[in-house]
């Protein structure tokens, strides 16, 4: 095999696996799984909407764990993981709200409703966008890491609310299904897409965290040179 090709496969196996799983899962969900009794074909949005929701919440949970690790140890790897997981979570949460809006328009007749599930999901997105924005304003790598970690922990408070709100309060959004309440033919595409989305998110987080670490090393080595450049005219 071509060495460049084999290296590309070794470096990006999680990404390739994600593509294969998502393509197969979506194909089964779109063309093989049966139409739902009341929602008909519109329900097929579920095979992409539910996995996106699960993995978005998982990304934010990963960011939360990394935030605790960052505050506890002060290691830059935790901080890089926090940024990477928060960014992947923001991307997935944005897609989740768009998918939900399309599904809502087809079934409820509205693009948006200030329902508790929808509202807490939107707040979660805004909170983590805020975490990433706040980071870009902070100066100094240690201060930046601490500020991001504290903000991520505060933002994470919304995650259990997003998950449990449909059980705690009256909601237009349905409560969580389980394999016992879903037709067996619908479980396979749901699981394939969930694992596909999981591998995609893992690939995003690993790559983005490495990029964050590389950027930090670059800025650390570049800084003394910049300082020297500033100091030269004085001398």
């Amino acid at each position: 095999m071509n060495p460049r090709l084999s290296r590309a496969i070794a470096d990006h196996w999680m990404g390739w696996l994600a593509i294969v799983l998502l393509v197969i899962g979506s194909w089964i969900g779109l063309f093989v799984a049966p139409a739902e009794r009341h929602m008909g074909d519109v329900q097929r949005i579920m095979y992409v909407h539910v996995p996106t929701a699960w993995i978005a919440l998982l990304c934010f949970t990963c960011a939360f764990v990394a935030a605790i690790g960052s505050l506890w140890t002060g290691r830059e790897r935790w901080d890089a993981t926090l940024v990477a997981a928060a960014e992947a979570g923001v991307v997935l949460n944005t897609l989740l709200l768009i998918q939900g809006s399309l599904w809502g328009r087809a079934t409820w007749g509205v693009w948006w409703d200030w329902d508790v599930r929808l509202t807490t999901s939107l707040i979660l997105l805004l909170l983590f966008v805020g975490v990433l924005s706040l980071r870009s304003f902070a100066a100094g790598s240690e201060r930046k890491a601490n500020l991001t970690a504290v903000a991520a922990i505060v933002a994470y408070v919304d995650v259990p609310l997003v998950y449990f709100c449909v059980r705690w309060w009256r909601s237009l959004h349905q409560i969580q299904s389980s394999p016992a309440t879903v037709d067996p033919a619908m479980i396979l595409p749901l699981r394939l897409n969930a694992f596909g989305m999981l591998f995609a998110a893992a690939w995003f987080i690993v790559r983005r965290a490495r990029l964050e670490l590389a950027r930090r090393r670059s800025s650390e080595t570049a800084l003394p040179e910049r300082v020297r450049m500033i100091e030269v005219p004085r001398g």
Binding site: L30, G40, V42, I45
Partner: peptide, 14 residues
């Protein structure tokens, strides 16, 4: 009853 059609929403979501 059942919602008829809606493939445009499914295609848009995917």
């Amino acid at each position: 009853g059942v919602i008829v059609g809606g493939w445009n929403f499914v295609v848009a979501a995917y």
